[in-house]
Write a protein that binds this DNA or RNA. Sequence first.
DNA 1: GCGTGACATGTAAGAATTTACATGTCAAAA
DNA 2: TTTTGACATGTAAATTCTTACATGTCACGC
Lengths: 181, 181
Amino acid sequence: MSLRIALLGLLRASGPSSGYDLAKSFESTLNYVWQAGHSQIYPELVKMAADGLVTVEAEGARGRKVYAITQEGSAQLRGWLLEQTPSLTVRSESALQAFLLPVLDPADAVAALERLRERYVEKVAMLETLCDQHGSKAFGRYALDHGLRHARTTIEWVDDTIATISRDIGHGGSCDENVAD
Amino acid sequence: MSLRIALLGLLRASGPSSGYDLAKSFESTLNYVWQAGHSQIYPELVKMAADGLVTVEAEGARGRKVYAITQEGSAQLRGWLLEQTPSLTVRSESALQAFLLPVLDPADAVAALERLRERYVEKVAMLETLCDQHGSKAFGRYALDHGLRHARTTIEWVDDTIATISRDIGHGGSCDENVAD
DNA sequence: GCGTGACATGTAAGAATTTACATGTCAAAA
DNA sequence: TTTTGACATGTAAATTCTTACATGTCACGC
């Protein structure tokens, strides 16, 4: 369902677009909260057209098909946004890794957290650049802002976690606990 | 791979546990960053045992099987944590919804954001309670802390986004733009 | 004219995830 | 004593997601 809603939202926000355009939009604006490749997007658009949520508005060069959202699609998007109660959970591989780091020796954990920190610093810089380019105009602004705030929050968390773990260094690590065989 | 690593991490942090225990741990500590149900966990543990990463250390009442991480499992966990560069992307249904809200009339969008805000306020309260219970002891503390910070950041984002959208009310909404048919 | 890279769409296979089905045990309260 | 709820493990089916394969067009520079 999320993919469908995301595509309807992009069509609504950006106007008629091809699957290729939508894949790019996913990459550049929705990437901070949802991901989908073209191999997922193309078949989904076909199904959505069959369900009357979008129509092929025009066909252009290189087989390009321009989809537009229909009134039915627009109604479904609005209904979902107003009525659905989305799950508040998040899926983040990097956060998962960060949480498991404390099972390492404290020194290793700190080193790994510092590498993670650097990557988030880069991410923040990248997002800030994008933010400046966008100005305060585009639809994607909210997404960008969200991504930026969360990346900064992660850096703060990493810093505090490093500090906490560092205090434990010398007080005995978790190195060989809980291992069988 | 993430599921495997998460299970190894939990076994390492909590000591020998059954699939049932691990499912509970997932729910209570890792839930903020990764989700897995028992129907995913049980078969994965069987595969991991076949690969020598865990062993069935004991069998108890009600068919309970207690798994323990092996040295090989421990080595693989450590290797992954130190060497892997996880993707920094996140998948969040609620954030996706939040991003698409601006395609609604500003008034609808603000109403929906306010409902979202309430849910996050509840979440923060819940996490704060859990935090107090845990004290500063447990492994899951980092996860909890992370979840709490991100939930608070989301609330701030919602507030600022509401403010931004509210300023636009009366300046013309996005109500019937970009709809075909 | 030829190559390269962005444009553009698709399918296939496999992995991961979710939801539902299915079964059985144990402890404690009513 | 019976029933309820937590404990405990699985499988099946459907969906979603990722990775790889496969194909062809157009514009631009060399």
